[in-house]
């Protein structure tokens, strides 16, 4: 099934090293349009580094990263977002002292234009744009199910809801691909079930491809169509959940780790 689908995101031969330490070793990898994929691997395997390369925060020494055929490498993070990749962070990175709605409105920034002069003069075009930003942001909050908390200060929300604000904020950038860095970390079983449902709805209802890094194997196996396994900066396996579960290389990589039991 994978061969026929056109890849939305494509990484080929990406190599990243810091001060002589190889973090990513000739990684090639792809995410198909409209799919849900996961990136797993033991701690320190380089998963978040890979996310940072895709989103322009790190600059790989060599290789190529394309989105829909367009080269992303050497582009600044805000340009990558503008091109259609949104992300959430492993540790919550909400804007403090700002309301939930204002946080989500940040995502609309790269889809709008008005500057300081039109704001001071309150030009009709600026007023219209402000209404559109608000409407689009409220729609994203409604989609993740926390519209009724729009006016609260974001960092005062329950932890699980703060995670949803981050997802809503990323969705507000109108991405083609959404990168979720450990979205289930710190969530309880009920919240995890809601998250699985939300990830599926993001793909089904909005047509956004999702790539997640996640340690919770139960969640990964349930939600992913494709799984890629990173170990010591190298891609060691790629396939459907049942294939990954049976791959001896994956089991070996996880040996001695808590995740191994979970996987087997």
């Amino acid at each position: 099934m994978s061969g026929a689908q056109k890849m939305l995101l494509n990484l080929s031969d990406v190599r990243l090293s810091f001060a002589g330490n190889t973090v990513l070793d000739h990684v090639s990898f792809g995410v198909a349009g409209g799919s849900i994929a996961s990136l797993i691997g033991p701690n320190g395997a380089g998963k978040t580094s890979l996310f940072n390369c895709i989103t322009g925060f790190y600059r790989p020494q060599s290789g190529s990263i394309t989105l829909g055929g367009e080269e992303l490498l050497r582009r600044k993070p805000h340009r990558v977002t503008q091109m259609g990749i949104a992300r959430t962070f492993q540790n919550l990175r909400l804007f403090r002292e700002m309301s939930v709605l204002e946080n989500v409105m940040a995502g609309q920034h790269c889809r709008t234009r008005a500057g300081a002069i039109s704001a001071v003069l309150r030009l009709p075009s600026q007023q219209r744009e402000e209404r559109e930003i608000r409407k689009a942001s409220e729609e994203c909050l409604d989609f993740v199910g926390i519209l009724d908390e729009a006016d609260r200060i974001a960092t005062t929300l329950a932890y699980g809801h703060q995670r949803r604000v981050e997802i809503a904020r990323a969705l507000a950038t109108q991405p083609k691909l959404l990168l979720l860095d450990e979205p289930a970390a710190g969530l309880n079983a009920g919240e995890k079930a809601t998250l699985i449902d939300l990830i599926r709805r993001i793909r089904d209802e909005r047509g956004v491809a999702v790539l997640l890094i996640e340690h919770d194997m139960g969640l990964v196996m349930k939600v992913s169509e494709r799984i890629s396994v990173l170990d010591h900066g190298a891609m060691i396996s790629e396939g459907r959940p049942d294939e990954i579960r049976a791959d001896p290389k994956v089991i070996e990589a996880y040996l001695g780790q808590d995740e191994a039991e979970e996987l087997l």
Binding site: T81, A116, A119
Partner: peptide, 25 residues
């Protein structure tokens, strides 16, 4: 200005530059 796209962007950048950049700012 406070109640505008650019005014909010100033706050985003002040609070968290990386998150702001990741939001396309």
């Amino acid at each position: 200005l406070s109640d505008s796209r650019i005014g909010r962007a100033w706050l985003y950048v002040r609070h968290d530059e990386d998150a702001a950049e990741a939001m396309g700012i």
